[in-house]
Amino acid sequence: MPRANRRRPDGGDDSFERLLSGWKRTETRRGRTWTVQPLSGSQSQKDYTCPGCGRVIAAGTAHVVVWQADGILGDAADLAARRHWHSACWKSA
């Protein structure tokens, strides 16, 4: 029997689940725990400003999305405060 590739009709915003799905890792820096998720160039569909260097991450450029993993306001609030970094800028931060 073929698999149905339709979205589930849960009625909610899927951006939270979409970002949580896929390969991600947890890193600790300066006493805080961060969730780091790489984005490929094909997943990056708009421009972002890197907080590390202040330069633009152009659409189509592979980079990482970073958000605090241990925030007191919960996962949804932490994800809303996520930032897009150049991979090299995040490594050197």
Rank of each mutant, 00 (worst) to 15 (best):
M1A: 08
P2D: 09
P2K: 09
R3P: 07
N5P: 09
R6A: 04
R8D: 11
R8V: 07
R8L: 11
P9V: 09
P9S: 15
G11N: 13
G11K: 12
D13W: 01
S15Y: 09
F16E: 13
F16I: 06
E17T: 10
R18Y: 04
R18E: 09
R18W: 03
L19I: 13
L19Y: 11
L19R: 09
L19E: 08
L20R: 12
G22A: 01
G22H: 00
G22Y: 00
R25N: 12
R25Q: 14
T26M: 04
T26N: 11
G31K: 04
G31W: 08
R32A: 15
R32C: 15
W34E: 08
T35D: 09
T35F: 00
T35L: 06
V36I: 10
V36Y: 00
V36C: 07
Q37P: 03
P38G: 09
P38W: 00
P38E: 09
L39Q: 12
S40M: 05
S40Y: 03
S40Q: 02
S40C: 00
G41F: 01
S42G: 11
Q43W: 01
S44K: 03
S44T: 12
S44G: 12
Q45N: 08
D47P: 05
D47W: 04
T49K: 11
P51A: 15
P51V: 12
P51M: 15
G52M: 05
G52C: 08
G52H: 02
R55F: 04
R55L: 12
R55Q: 10
R55V: 04
R55E: 12
R55A: 12
V56Q: 11
V56H: 04
I57F: 02
A58M: 02
A58D: 05
A58C: 00
A59C: 06
G60P: 12
G60N: 14
T61C: 05
T61D: 10
H63N: 06
V64F: 00
V64K: 00
V65P: 04
V66T: 05
W67N: 10
Q68A: 15
Q68P: 07
Q68C: 15
A69K: 04
A69W: 02
D70S: 10
D70L: 08
G71F: 05
G71C: 05
G71I: 00
G71E: 07
L73N: 12
D75F: 06
A77S: 15
D78E: 15
L79T: 08
A80Q: 15
A81S: 15
R82L: 13
R82S: 12
R82F: 14
R82C: 11
R82T: 08
W85K: 04
S87F: 07
A88L: 01
C89E: 07
W90I: 06
W90E: 06
S92T: 11
